[in-house]
Design a protein around this nucleic acid. Structure first.
Length: 271
DNA sequence: CCTGAAACCTGTCTGC
DNA sequence: TGCAGACAGGTTTCAG
């Protein structure tokens, strides 16, 4: 479940009452060693045990857990999930990869079916997030700057928006939805986007992310966490269904190896 | 610089 | 029923 709104939802749940803030880590279980990107299992345990959770945040799609001396980063990739365990007896724990045990007996579980997710424990946060592009919801990013960013390169707009070095947080769902909202074809070349279109695109990105967060993210298939945004998709996974705006059937194509959904009428390719 | 393919993994669903 | 193939919310690396 991991694009910006889903990670934000998880971060907020860990930060809220019943979350992990102010708890002290008493133990750590690593069930899949590859989930740990840095450091190794023994160093990880040695360093993290005894530390207290200061606060929880998000940067791009990274979950940030701040400790007194270090930062714990978790990236959920395709199938990761993080939650505080309440009832261990009534849960499928087959894909638990890493668990932190707290002093009050509660546990924070990193569960990840496909094993793509990664965890880092570092002193310098920039070592993990230093290469990320700006936060799309940061007010300091304005339409003029966003247009400049689009002009600096000349790439297909969809893969560009999903490039975390360009902008941090968008994934396949929210990119498709934002491009539809902005009326831009996924294959549009970034340098051909005019200032007004850039502003419309930035506003669309912010609108879909904001709505996604307000709806606690999207819940699809067997990965369900209570989000609601999947019921409000305009194009994503709506192949063959009528466009809400013009009635034309939504088209699916592959762009940058990813399934891409769009309305051929509302999102014309000008070139 | 840009694009596409492959790899990393497990699970679900569809069609023959 | 069985099985092959497509597909899945992501990122990195490599070839052309």
């Amino acid at each position: 479940m991991p694009e910006l709104p889903e990670v934000e939802t998880i971060a907020r749940s860990l930060d809220a009452a019943g979350g992990i803030v102010a708890k002290t880590i008493r133990g750590a279980e690593v069930h899949w060693h590859k989930s740990l990107a840095f450091p190794g299992v023994e160093d990880f345990k040695k360093q993290i045990i005894g530390q207290q959770i200061v606060s929880v945040g998000r940067r791009g799609k990274f979950l940030q857990i701040f400790l007194p001396m270090q930062t714990l980063f978790i990236h959920l990739r395709m199938s990761g999930d993080v939650f505080v365990e309440t009832d261990p007896t009534e849960r499928d724990s087959r894909h638990d990869r890493l668990i932190l045990v707290f002093d009050d007996g509660s546990r924070m579980v990193f569960n990840d079916t496909r094993k793509f997710g990664r965890v880092w424990l570092v002193k310098d946060p920039l070592r993990v997030t230093g290469g990320l592009g700006p936060e799309p919801l940061d007010e300091r990013l304005d339409a003029v700057e966003f247009h400049k960013m689009l002009q600096r390169v000349n790439r297909q707009i969809k893969p560009l928006l999903m490039d975390q070095k360009f902008l941090a947080g968008l994934g396949n769902i929210y990119t498709d939805e934002a491009l539809f909202k902005a009326g831009i074809h996924p294959l549009t070349t970034s340098r051909s986007i005019e200032p007004l279109q850039a502003e419309k695109l930035l506003n669309a990105i912010r609108a879909v992310l904001t709505e996604g967060i307000a709806r606690n993210g999207s819940s699809i298939d067997w990965v369900y966490r209570g989000g609601d945004f999947q019921n409000h998709f305009k194009v994503y996974q709506r192949t063959g269904q009528p466009c809400a705006c013009c009635g034309t059937l939504i088209t699916r194509m592959i762009v940058g190896q990813r399934g891409t959904h769009f309305c051929p009428i509302c999102q014309p390719l000008s070139s």
